[in-house]
Simulated scan of single mutants.
Amino acid sequence: MTHAGHSLRIERLKFAYGDATILDGIDLSVHEGEFLALLGPSGSGKSTLLRLIAGLEAPTAGLVSAGGRPVAGPGTDRAVVFQHYALFPWMTVVDNVAEAVAKAHPTLSRGERRERAQAQLARVGLGEVGRHHPFELSGGMQQRAAIARALALESPFLLMDEPFGALDPINRARLQDLLVEVWRGSSPRRTVVFVTHDVDEALLLADRVAVMGANPGRVIAEYPVAFDRPRQRAALFKDAGFHHLREEIADALDADTLAHLEAA
């Protein structure tokens, strides 16, 4: 796919809590329609970086821009999916999604909002559970509902903070496949920033991986992921190029860890 331009730009970014610098010197661009994985260990600031892109935090220095406009706070142009679902427990699943439809289309009637919400639920395989409350669903189903809600915003940017980290391996794999299917099937294709600490997940999903090191958080390497799509796990995990790239990323993370240990 040819990328028309930089949809997201992060320039000379620094973020600190008091005297503690969490991120320092981040320069990163994400192209329109690209799927970028932010990969790094705990403490590398990858979730903080995602929150800065979402406008949930403000940078100490530097600039974050989305679609050519500086990020000054949360906006419906940037949908966020967290690890822990964040659904309203007192609302039915369809009403949770309808809330997002209302933000995207405030002039629609309640019935029209619910109709569109139901369509999004069907898109993620939850067409039969709209009348249930979140606590009546499994963790995997709740995360599907959270993805449906994010899609209902019709945002050009989809920001995901380890969304499958709390799931068992089977549900995790199913939702990984669902995410790629929805992303590839969207027109125009959304720009995705996906936080993970799992190298295999990053290489399965992403077009490019930005590897982050810790103390303070910064981008230490970037790797294009050129494997053909659609990607099948069995074939991918047998591919020599996959294993070479996985080892290269692991070596970069190990080298950063050793450098910090030697400097301590």
Rank of each mutant, 00 (worst) to 15 (best):
154 E>T: 04
55 G>C: 06
242 F>E: 04
242 F>M: 05
89 P>D: 13
151 L>N: 00
208 R>V: 13
173 A>E: 15
212 M>L: 15
208 R>N: 12
207 D>L: 11
138 S>L: 08
62 G>C: 09
169 P>T: 10
197 H>K: 12
129 V>T: 12
180 V>D: 05
153 L>F: 09
38 L>Q: 10
234 A>L: 13
129 V>E: 01
191 T>L: 12
29 S>W: 00
260 H>R: 15
127 G>F: 07
153 L>I: 03
70 P>V: 02
165 G>K: 10
221 A>Y: 03
93 V>R: 01
236 L>V: 12
189 R>K: 15
162 E>Q: 11
73 G>R: 04
140 G>C: 10
195 V>P: 08
226 A>R: 14
125 G>L: 04
187 S>A: 13
88 F>D: 09
91 M>K: 14
144 R>W: 04
31 H>E: 15
138 S>E: 06
193 V>M: 07
128 E>I: 02
76 T>N: 13
244 H>T: 14
220 I>R: 10
38 L>T: 08
125 G>Y: 11
35 F>P: 00
245 L>S: 01
197 H>T: 13
214 A>C: 02
1 M>C: 00
237 F>M: 09
232 Q>F: 14
26 I>K: 06
75 G>W: 06
30 V>W: 01
118 Q>A: 15
227 F>A: 04
172 R>S: 02
165 G>V: 08
148 A>L: 03
238 K>A: 15
154 E>K: 11
124 V>A: 01
98 A>M: 09
45 G>N: 05
83 Q>S: 05
9 R>L: 10
88 F>S: 10
186 S>D: 13
68 G>I: 05
197 H>R: 13
50 L>H: 02
240 A>N: 00
89 P>M: 07
6 H>P: 06
136 E>I: 02
258 L>Y: 03
197 H>Q: 15
186 S>A: 15
37 A>N: 07
73 G>M: 06
114 R>Y: 00
172 R>N: 05
237 F>A: 06
21 T>Q: 09
218 R>V: 08
164 F>E: 07
85 Y>K: 00
166 A>K: 06
70 P>N: 09
119 A>K: 14
1 M>Y: 09
110 R>I: 04
254 D>N: 14
199 V>C: 09
68 G>V: 04
203 L>H: 08
166 A>N: 11
210 A>I: 11
35 F>C: 03
125 G>T: 05
3 H>R: 13
65 S>V: 02
102 A>M: 11
19 D>T: 12
54 A>C: 06
114 R>G: 03
97 V>T: 03
25 G>F: 02
246 R>Y: 02
260 H>F: 02
21 T>D: 11
205 L>E: 08
177 D>W: 01
57 E>R: 12
113 R>S: 03
45 G>T: 02
24 D>P: 03
108 L>A: 11
82 F>Q: 10
108 L>C: 01
32 E>W: 03
257 T>M: 12
224 P>S: 10
239 D>L: 02
28 L>D: 01
34 E>W: 06
174 R>V: 04
16 A>E: 13
250 A>I: 08
219 V>E: 02
105 H>E: 15
65 S>K: 12
26 I>S: 02
188 P>W: 10
196 T>Y: 08
106 P>G: 07
231 R>P: 01
37 A>I: 09
262 E>P: 07
130 G>I: 04
188 P>M: 12
59 P>L: 06
172 R>L: 09
222 E>A: 12
68 G>E: 10
34 E>T: 09
66 A>I: 13
257 T>D: 04
32 E>C: 05
157 F>H: 15
